[in-house]
Amino acid sequence: MPEATYTWAEMMAISISHEMADGAFGSVGAASHIPAAGLRLAQLTHAPNLSFFCGGSGAMNPKIQRLTESSADYRNLVTSEYHFSLDDVVDFETAMRFDFAFLGGMQIDKFGNLNMAMIGDWDKPKVRGPGTIGLIFTGGFKTSYIYTQHHTPKIFVDKVDFVSGAGWLDGGDARAKVYRPESDGPRRVFTPLGVFDFEPETKRMRVLKVHPWSSIEKIQAATGFELLIADDVQTVGAPSEEELTLLRTQVDRDGVLRRYPSVA
C-alpha cells in the first residue's frame, strides 16, 4: 500500500504522464529524472507504445526501474532497446522525427522562449549559464514540453535575456514565419505548482491545471509576468493509489522523487 503522502516531484511526474499520447516518440534531456519518470509511468499505464530516449546517454526506453541521477548512467543503457549515437540524435532532431522533447531553461518567458546561455548582457554576463546544448532544436521538434523544478519570478521572466531555444518567439504568428510548418512551438509547461499551455491566438502562457497544494494566486505571485487563465482551469486531484504504487515499485524503486518535500 502506498503511503498517504506524496511529493510535488511525484505529482509532477504524474501530471506529465497524463499529457503523454500513446505511440508518440520523443526525448528527455540529461538530469531529467522527473520527465523520465512521467514517461515511464505513461508507458506502464495508458501509453504502452510511447517511446523516448534519454539525452546524454542515448538509451531508448530504459527499463531500469530506478531513476538514475545521470541519464547517461550505464544502467540506463544496458536496460534499453537501442543506443542512440549523437549522429542519430541530431539526425532525428533536424529531420523532425521527434514528436516531442522535454526542455528546460534558466529563464523561461511568457511565450515559452528558453535561455540556457547567460543572464545579463552577452558582453558582460551577470551569470554564465551552462550553454544552449540542444535547444535550437525547438525548431525541429514537432512540439516541445517545458519543465522546471523551480517556479519563481527569476525563472519565469517577461522576456529572456538570450534566446537559446525559440518558443513562440514574440507570440501571435511570429513563430510560423521562421520555422518549418511541421515544427510547432511548446505545448505545455510543467512546474511544481501546475500545468500550463499557450493561448492559441496570442501564444501567451496560460494556467491550465493547478496542483492540489497550489492556487492561481500563488502561481501568479511566483511568475514574473501576467499569466492568462484558461476558462476551464481545473484543480488537479491527488494522485491515485494505483499511480503512486506503480511509480514507487516499477519506476522509482530507490525513492528519488520521494526525497523532494512532501505536499500531502
Binding site: T94, A117, W122, T132, L135, I136, F137, G139, G140, F162, V163, S164, G165, A166, L169, R175, V178, Y179, R180
Partner: peptide, 11 residues
C-alpha cells in the same frame, strides 16, 4: 548547411 533551426535564436 542546415534547415531553419538557428533562425529565431540569438546564437
Amino acid at each position: 548547411p542546415l534547415p531553419p533551426l538557428y533562425e529565431g535564436t540569438d546564437l
